[in-house]
Nucleic acid binder design. Structure first.
Lengths: 163, 163
DNA sequence: TTCTTTGCAAACCTTTTGCAACGGA
DNA sequence: TCCGTTGCAAAAGGTTTGCAAAGAA
């Protein structure tokens, strides 16, 4: 296993590729492009780490050239997920759905410190293989999974025994 | 790997053991026992499969000798989880937290058909071992995890190619 | 008696929806 | 022009909380 790749910064060329992918999906669904949607996508793609819809609205208001109403962002995000730009993540992390960039990132899962909130992203192909084995054994066609580990990180765990 | 143990029926003796465990936790926390809480615990322990707080309230109203207000059950369930009688489960299954019995059940994870909702519970020690390895590698003390696989079951998946 | 538990209603919060105005193709 | 998109406000749905009454130790 290994820690997932570094802070996944997507440069402007990458963002451009992502928007093209989005526009392809939009076209394929018979929808129309929109400036607001692209702005939301840009902010989401550039976001460092995990975020909620509220986070996007806030960031857009603070740094963007375009604003978007929360209801609008709630409508846009599922499309960005469908287009493969984002993915839902840390499903079990309390209130509010969380997302992170999926576009041009390797798949990874999360190890979360329940005390300080620290998150380690890891890739472990062996587990992915076993998951496929399980699905196969039960006759399932595997389409996705949620795999989150909880614990105490080295700073939060009591050292050298009970405390 | 294997499918998790059969429908985990807990007989009256088992329920009694569970209630004793609950009472121990209650005492340890300086709380008091209550008839309503025990009734909720009984219904939850006897529940076949996964359930929401609403399900408990409904079952209690229909079959129980004691009723409980939803707000009360919302207050009780976390204690039952803490006491090890229940565990949260299928975190990603849309609205509403879901629970299932944890008392005297082996640990298992879920394989869920996103089309018909069928759920297969499986145990796979190899994955548990790998999870512990991951936690160790990153210096975490592992306390729990969420592991859910999504896919299409054999009835729902298109047979022999695309359709 | 003292402190916890319960029911009830109201508050909360995130997310969804109806609708009229706006905008892209 | 013809729809899809957006903003706004209201609704929805699950969960929490304040408070007074009821119950356990």
């Amino acid at each position: 296993m290994r820690r997932a790749a570094q802070p996944p910064v997507l440069d402007s060329v990458g963002i451009h590729r992502a928007l093209e992918q989005l526009h392809g999906v939009v076209r394929a669904k018979g929808l129309k492009n929109s400036e607001v949607r692209d702005a939301v996508a840009r902010v989401a793609l550039a976001y460092d780490g995990h975020f909620t819809v509220e986070d996007l609205v806030k960031t857009l208001r603070e740094t963007g050239t375009v604003e978007a109403h929360p209801a609008t962002v709630y409508r846009i995000v599922p499309l960005l997920v469908e287009a493969g730009l984002l993915q839902e993540t840390m499903v079990s992390a309390g209130e509010g759905h969380r997302y992170e960039r999926a576009f041009e990132r390797d798949h990874h899962d999360h190890l979360i410190c329940t005390s300080c909130g620290k998150v380690v992203e890891f890739e472990f192909e062996a587990i992915e293989v076993l998951q496929r084995n399980i699905a196969e054994q039960f006759g399932f066609f595997l389409t996705g999974h949620v795999h989150e580990l909880f614990g105490l990180c080295s700073r939060c765990a009591p050292k050298g025994g009970a405390r």
